[in-house]
Amino acid sequence: MSIKVENLYKSFGEHIVLNGISLEIEEGKTICIMGPSGYGKTTLIGILMGIIKPDSGSIIGLEDKKISAVFQEDRLLENLSIIANIHMVCQKIDVMKIQEGIKALGLNEAINQPIRELSGGMKRRVAILRALFADYDVLFLDEAFKELDMATYETTIEYVRNKTKGKTVICITHDKDEAKLLEADRVIELDKI
């Protein structure tokens, strides 16, 4: 079942952020949402995730779906290790599997370090791993690959692409090449709808 967004309005005070947005996202597809800053990309997925209330409009098709996300900020628990942060959202998954993911994204050396000691790019990869290990039908990626250096950027996107096959992925990005690397099925330019 696809996700249907109809006539979504949201304003913060006098500032209208979403002005009657309507769109449809097919199940199992990867959608990239692009657009200049201030066009409400983060607000839109915040509403889809249920953490921001719209002023009006409706969303159909997400009610019984399990969601996962990489937020614009890492939102990790700084005192805990990588494994503890991931284990928090997927208590039933074997730690060995988590360790494999950690290794695949080049975080093996930092496995026992608390998050606060990691670099920005490493924290980003932990946030991505946490989102991928959670049990989900729809994955939201809000500028998930920012802060990644050249060496890890492409391998991380490739890892995400392989792990999300058959799942619905909604990704916010400023970069058209990122959409290509993700092999997005559709790119929605928010300033043109």
Binding site: G50, I51, A69, R75, L77, N79, L80, M88, A134
Partner: peptide, 24 residues
Amino acid sequence: TKLLEMADVFHLPLKVRIRYIYVS
């Protein structure tokens, strides 16, 4: 609040929230 939103998005059960978020 951003951590609490994260807990909402991942539907973390109360005992997990207490253990990982509230306690720290």
